[in-house]
Amino acid sequence: MTNYKETILIVEDDFQIRNFISYSLRNEGYICKIVSTGSRAINTIANETVDLVILDLGLPDIDGIDVIRMLREWSEIPVIVVSARDQDREKAYALDLGADDYLTKPFSSTELLARIRVAVRHMKRRESVKKQSVIQVGGLSVDFEKRIVTLDGNEIHLTPMEYSLMSLLIKNRGKVVTTASVIKELWGPGYGQDTQALRTLMAGLRRKIEANPAKPRYIMTEIGVGYRMVEE
């Protein structure tokens, strides 16, 4: 495991972007495969060893969104979207379909590498531990069997809704959970897009776990898209 370096598939039709992504990935020791169309991407993932996909949405043949949809029917491979589409709607859509992360162009390679590390960790965690009864993030820990949440060793009391929100985010730590999917998970489908209740719930939860809500340590806001629990 120690020397294993992940194979990353870059799906991108712009030559220059492909070049610098593969350069910085190889610099970090990853193995790179490069394709420029959606159909070749699906073929490669199905037939070769690939651990992670970096996917551009504006591909010449199939829309990247459809690539995610097709992929998710049979594969759980981490997908990081890099796209020139800056609309929140597209972002949330890709995440809800199962993309692990979304980077809007232009981005720096440092940022991309950080996201790749998170996604890889995520994948490994998924492989090694099937079901964790206790999840720990920094000083925060959630015991799912006992339904106890502690912060720096002290138990904190959450309402049932706050507990549900907390478990949803901590189980998906490192990943953006979209506003729509939080609402659907907590209030059920048909509740629509009423964000007011969620904002209020989130404010209540943050007041219990964050020292300073203007500088959150645990739950980050992805404006217009959703929330993300930090990894450590």
Partner: peptide
Amino acid sequence: SHDLRTPLTGIMGTSEM
């Protein structure tokens, strides 16, 4: 937006390289 973002990504990324 798309047509401006793509070359900017290339410029910034290549310079980083």
